[in-house]
Amino acid sequence: MRFRPGPATIASASFLCLLIGLLFLALQIKTIFSDQLKQEYSGLVLEGIERAESARSLVRLWQQQADNSNTQSQQSEGYRRARADLAARLASLAALVNSSPSAAPRIPQSALSPDANLDDTDALLAVESVYWRAQRNRDSVDARTRITRVAHTLIVLSALVFGALITALGMYAKRTRQLAGESHKFEHAALHDAMTGLPNRRKLFATLAETVAGSEGNSKRRKIAVLYVDLDGFKQVNDSLGHHIGDKFLIAVSRRFRQTVRVVDVVARFGGDEFVVLVREFSTNAELEAIAQRLIACVVQTDEQMGVGFVRASIGIASFPDPVEDYHHLVAVADETMYQVKRNGKNGYAFATRSN
Rank of each mutant, 00 (worst) to 15 (best):
residue 208 L to F: 09
residue 179 L to I: 07
residue 167 T to K: 12
residue 185 K to S: 14
residue 186 F to Q: 13
residue 167 T to A: 08
residue 175 R to H: 11
residue 177 R to T: 13
residue 208 L to H: 09
residue 195 M to G: 06
residue 189 A to S: 09
residue 197 G to V: 10
residue 202 R to K: 13
residue 197 G to Y: 14
residue 192 H to N: 02
residue 203 K to T: 00
residue 201 R to S: 06
residue 168 A to K: 07
residue 202 R to P: 06
residue 175 R to W: 08
residue 185 K to M: 15
residue 191 L to Y: 00
residue 189 A to Y: 07
residue 204 L to E: 03
residue 210 E to L: 03
residue 176 T to L: 06
residue 195 M to W: 12
residue 207 T to L: 02
residue 200 N to R: 02
residue 206 A to P: 11
residue 174 K to N: 14
residue 212 V to T: 13
residue 188 H to E: 01
residue 207 T to G: 05
residue 182 E to T: 07
residue 207 T to P: 02
residue 207 T to K: 01
residue 203 K to I: 00
residue 207 T to I: 07
residue 186 F to I: 11
residue 172 Y to D: 13
residue 187 E to D: 11
residue 208 L to E: 12
residue 179 L to T: 10
residue 210 E to A: 06
residue 206 A to N: 15
residue 177 R to S: 10
residue 173 A to Y: 07
residue 177 R to K: 11
residue 184 H to V: 02
residue 199 P to K: 01
residue 171 M to F: 03
residue 167 T to R: 03
residue 202 R to M: 05
residue 184 H to E: 04
residue 178 Q to L: 08
residue 181 G to N: 12
residue 180 A to Y: 12
residue 201 R to D: 12
residue 198 L to Y: 11
residue 171 M to T: 03
residue 186 F to C: 09
residue 200 N to K: 05
residue 190 A to V: 01
residue 207 T to C: 04
residue 209 A to D: 12
residue 196 T to N: 03
residue 179 L to K: 08
residue 195 M to D: 09
residue 204 L to D: 01
residue 187 E to Q: 05
residue 171 M to W: 03
residue 180 A to I: 08
residue 210 E to C: 03
residue 194 A to F: 14
residue 213 A to N: 10
residue 204 L to V: 01
residue 206 A to R: 10
residue 185 K to P: 15
residue 179 L to R: 12
residue 205 F to N: 14
residue 191 L to H: 01
residue 203 K to A: 00
residue 210 E to N: 05
residue 192 H to C: 02
residue 209 A to Y: 07
residue 179 L to Q: 07
residue 180 A to C: 07
residue 188 H to M: 02
residue 189 A to E: 07
residue 203 K to P: 01
residue 207 T to R: 03
residue 181 G to Q: 10
residue 186 F to M: 15
residue 204 L to G: 00
residue 199 P to T: 01
residue 195 M to Y: 11
residue 174 K to Q: 15
residue 182 E to H: 06
residue 212 V to K: 13
residue 167 T to Y: 04
residue 191 L to V: 01
residue 190 A to E: 04
residue 176 T to I: 14
residue 183 S to Q: 13
residue 183 S to T: 05
residue 208 L to C: 12
residue 186 F to K: 09
residue 180 A to Q: 13
residue 191 L to W: 00
residue 201 R to C: 06
residue 189 A to N: 02
residue 176 T to V: 10
residue 186 F to V: 13
residue 197 G to E: 14
residue 191 L to M: 00
residue 198 L to Q: 06
residue 204 L to W: 02
residue 194 A to Q: 12
residue 182 E to V: 03
residue 173 A to P: 04
residue 194 A to S: 15
residue 212 V to H: 12
residue 169 L to N: 09
residue 197 G to T: 13
residue 180 A to W: 10
residue 189 A to P: 06
residue 182 E to M: 06
residue 205 F to A: 14
residue 201 R to Q: 08
residue 198 L to R: 06
